[in-house]
């Protein structure tokens, strides 16, 4: 199954479970307090996922390594390479 298919399956499963519980006909309804918690649940989940995403990306952005030494080391290696290659007769 494609990743899109997996997502659709998952969403359909959760969605129908939610709909069955929250939008049931009057005779089969859950007690009022449960229903009140259930109705806005999808929105809560969406907001929670949004927060998680922002926090994760923000944290990873803040901890993204700046490889200063790698850049400095590369410059040294470049000078060494240039000198050695010239010595071996390379015309740049």
């Amino acid at each position: 199954m494609t990743k899109l298919g997996q997502w659709l399956c998952g969403l359909a499963l959760l969605g129908s479970a939610w709909a069955a519980l929250a939008l049931a006909p009057p005779g089969l309804r859950l007690p009022a307090p449960y229903r009140q918690a259930l109705l806005p649940l999808p929105v809560y989940l969406l907001v929670a996922f949004g927060c998680y995403s922002l926090a994760t990306v923000g944290y990873r952005l803040a901890t993204f390594n700046d490889c200063e030494e790698a850049a400095a080391e590369l410059q040294e290696h470049i000078s060494a390479a240039r000198a050695d290659l010239r010595r071996r007769g390379l015309r740049f």
């Binding site: 990743k3 997502w7 995403s53 994760t56 990306v57 990873r60 952005l61 993204f64 390594n65 700046d66 490889c67 200063e68 790698a70 850049a71």
Partner: peptide, 30 residues
Amino acid sequence: YKGNGGVYGWDLKRKLISRGANFITQVLLR
């Protein structure tokens, strides 16, 4: 994106795009 890995010469915007794109990719494609 892991351990001692990293980049040099990227500004904040470039890093944000990179991290954001990577996050979306991880979520969608696992």
